[in-house]
């Protein structure tokens, strides 16, 4: 097997093993109801993690997404409460704002040659601050259109419900996979993560790609905010704190190298499923504290960091062996 598939294979293996263990203890966990809920409950995290995957593949990081989700949900709630605009229009405006916000951060990273960590850290404070400016209260969303959207679902065999936002999660992952592996933009993202200077020499428009990556992350953070708004039917500026870190964890558990250039969007999907599975197990168990999610995610992150190091070490050794085969 090619070494780049190894982390993905490990992620899938861990997921299957974990699910088998859960099933052994709680046979009812293997049902479309559980799977449907898993998708619905993790939809906003999953969508934002797709954007994060692109960012990390390119060798960057986006710390602003949690705040952008909060901003979007507050923005939608405030606008819906104070104007008669249709939610679809509000959604479109929100997406425009967050995409432009992401693009602006990408431009700052490229043209000012600033580290993504600093730029998106500033973006994180900025977006959270803007949410507070809009409102410091938790504002409920009451709109008939929300009820309509929430009533959409597809009843899966076995009685599980694939809700609209769960379906959206699947759709976003499908599109994300296509963009990453079947477009020139996707190839450019991997190229940037490999070596930005070489990528430039090979004709990749580094500036346009960087702006595109962070704009995509902003767009998906906005979409995630809309999903979050539908999921909680409220807007609150203190919500979604630390979601960016959960997203990064899902990306890394999904087998993407934090240094960029190697990984898969599909891996992130499995990463999200693993994190959701742990939460579901804790709910089924009923006695465990929800902090166990954090502990298990922490352990998994360590495992994956070691795994990635191990793979790098192995491939380095293979290359060395190749050289010796030539040399002697």
């Amino acid at each position: 097997m090619k070494s780049r598939y190894l982390p993905l294979a490990a992620t899938i293996l861990i997921f299957v093993l974990a699910y088998a263990l859960c099933y052994a203890q709680f046979p009812s966990m293997l049902s479309t109801r559980v799977i449907g809920n898993l998708l619905t409950d993790n939809a906003f995290l999953g969508i934002v993690a797709v954007g994060m995957t692109f960012v990390i593949l390119s060798g960057g990081i986006d710390l602003s997404v949690g705040s952008v989700i909060a901003f979007t949900s507050v923005f939608i709630a405030v606008v819906l409460a104070n104007t008669g605009l249709h939610p679809l229009i509000v959604f479109a405006v929100a997406l425009l704002i967050t995409t432009a916000f992401g693009a602006a951060m990408g431009a700052a990273i490229h043209y000012l040659e600033m580290p993504p960590f600093i730029v998106t850290l500033a973006g994180m404070f900025l977006a959270r601050g803007m949410a507070f400016v809009l409102s410091i209260d938790s504002i409920p969303v009451m709109h008939p259109f929300y009820d309509t959207l929430q009533s959409f679902y597809w009843r899966m065999p076995g009685g599980g419900r694939l809700t609209l936002i769960g379906g959206l999660l699947l759709l976003v992952f499908a599109i994300g996979i296509l963009i990453a592996h079947r477009t020139r933009f996707g190839a450019n993202v991997y190229a940037l993560g490999g070596d930005a200077a070489t990528a430039r020499l090979m004709g990749v428009s580094v500036g346009r790609t960087t702006v595109g990556i962070y704009a995509l992350s902003g767009l998906l953070a906005g979409l995630s905010g809309i999903v979050f708004s539908l999921y909680t039917t409220a807007g609150y500026s203190l919500s979604a704190v630390g979601v960016e870190l959960d997203a990064i964890a899902a990306v890394v558990i999904g087998g993407t190298l934090l240094t960029g250039g190697s990984g898969f969007v599909a891996g992130t999907f499995v990463g999200i499923l693993i994190m959701g599975l742990i939460q579901t197990y804790i709910i089924f168990d009923g006695t465990l504290s929800s902090w166990w999610t954090k502990i298990v995610v922490g352990v998994l992150l360590f495992v994956f960091i070691f795994l990635q190091k191990g793979i790098l070490w192995l491939s380095a050794r293979k290359t060395a062996a190749l050289h010796h085969a030539h040399g002697s």
Binding site: A187, Y190, A191, G193, G194, D195, T198, M202, G261
Partner: peptide, 8 residues
């Protein structure tokens, strides 16, 4: 120095 991308 080979100016190609090792990860692609």
């Amino acid at each position: 120095e080979v100016n190609l991308l090792p990860n692609l």
